[in-house]
């Protein structure tokens, strides 16, 4: 049931699908060969999901911890300073940088530019480089 909910293509009898309209197929799996274009795209969605589901709640809890006073702030900062806390911050930073860089790429596409296959690969590599630079820059400034 869980599989059928997430992946109705798995159901051979179309009439038994929850909704007869077609939905997007998974990019990973037997449907498409993994390519840079599709992988960068799905990674952008995953980064957005990570930020929404985990990074943003933690940021809002951090703000509430400040509102709660010095004790709750200290408790929260200790939690963030732990090894899992630090790892979480690093992944969050990476997701934010990546989603931002790929978002800028999308905004360029929206003006009708850089739409050729060659340009799409070019901006893809450029975006990856930009992500690394921004990630490293923020990390360097935060630890300085």
């Amino acid at each position: 049931m869980w599989l059928q909910t997430l992946m109705p293509e798995a159901i051979t009898d179309v009439s038994k699908q929850p909704d007869p309209r077609p939905i997007s197929p998974f990019l990973i799996g037997p449907y498409y060969r993994p390519q840079l274009t599709s992988m960068l795209s799905i990674a952008s969605r995953l980064a957005g999901i990570f930020v929404t589901a985990l990074t943003m709640p933690v940021m809002f809890l951090y703000l509430l911890a400040i509102a709660g006073g010095p004790e709750s702030h200290a408790r929260f900062v200790t939690l963030l300073g732990s090894l899992p806390g630090k790892a979480f911050c690093l992944v969050s930073l990476l997701c934010l940088c990546y989603h931002l860089a790929n978002g800028i790429r999308h905004l360029v596409w929206d003006t009708g530019r850089a739409m050729s296959l060659k340009a799409i690969y070019g901006t893809g590599y450029l975006m990856l480089a930009g992500t690394c630079v921004l990630f490293a820059l923020v990390l360097w400034r935060a630890l300085a």
């Binding site: 699908q17 939905i23 957005g48």
Partner: peptide
């Protein structure tokens, strides 16, 4: 975020 998550849900949660 809520707009983006809505699209992901519409695409992948049937």
């Amino acid at each position: 975020a809520q707009g983006g998550i809505a699209v992901v849900c519409e695409d992948y949660v049937a």
